[in-house]
Design a protein around this nucleic acid. Structure first.
Lengths: 101, 101
DNA sequence: GCAAAGGTAAACCATATGGTTCACCGTCAG
DNA sequence: CTGACGGTGAACCATATGGTTTACCTTTGC
């Protein structure tokens, strides 16, 4: 069910959040600060990323800490690799077929 | 602008189309046949994939042939690799920091 | 204990998305 | 030539998405 993750990464705002989070965990407020968006909007995006299994959040006191899951992109990476492998072997097969003729 | 591709792959129908196309080019009709969807619906998805630079289509006679672009997933693969690299170096840094203390 | 800060829930809105049907057009086969 | 086939454009619809504002709750600092 990797399409869930693709969908989550398909929004530019959420992609930016992931890239930001790759540099270390931050609070939700800090995530919203550099944007022109309201906090609730940003938090909705964080929720989506959370449900896609890309980030985890913990509430410490009154601040919610968001961090990238260490296994966040493995599903995406493996799917992509599989697909590329499949595709390249098909190209190889086509190549040998062309050589034979 | 890799979010365009992520968004395109974020829909289960389109993801299935890509996987199907990885096994070789097909006509639009053949793409729609195994599904419960109407042809126009499938063709809309193909358009989206085309605009995301993932597939190309050519019209031969009255049939439209759809094929996966050979460079379809490079952007996705490179972004993912970069991100994982960034993330793992950060983890390494954290590890050495913990060792020092 | 009070005020400010950080977050959250709810209501709401505009637009995008994913799908349908129907009418129609070009192409291929008999 | 004509009919069936594959695809396309348009109109339309329901729901999802991305955003807002407002009110409110909890935590923190003085």
């Amino acid at each position: 069910m990797v399409h869930r993750q693709f969908a989550a990464l398909g929004d530019p705002t959420r992609l930016a959040i992931v890239e930001r989070l790759a540099c270390g965990p931050t609070s939700a407020g800090d995530l919203a600060a550099p944007t022109t968006m309201s906090l609730p909007a940003v938090l909705k995006h964080v929720r989506v990323l959370e449900e896609a299994g890309l980030v985890t959040t913990v509430k410490r006191g009154r601040v919610r800490e968001c961090r990238l899951r260490d296994d966040a992109l493995v599903a995406v990476a493996t799917w992509t690799a599989q697909q590329q492998a499949l595709w390249s072997t098909r190209l190889d097969a086509l190549g040998t077929l062309l050589e034979e003729t």
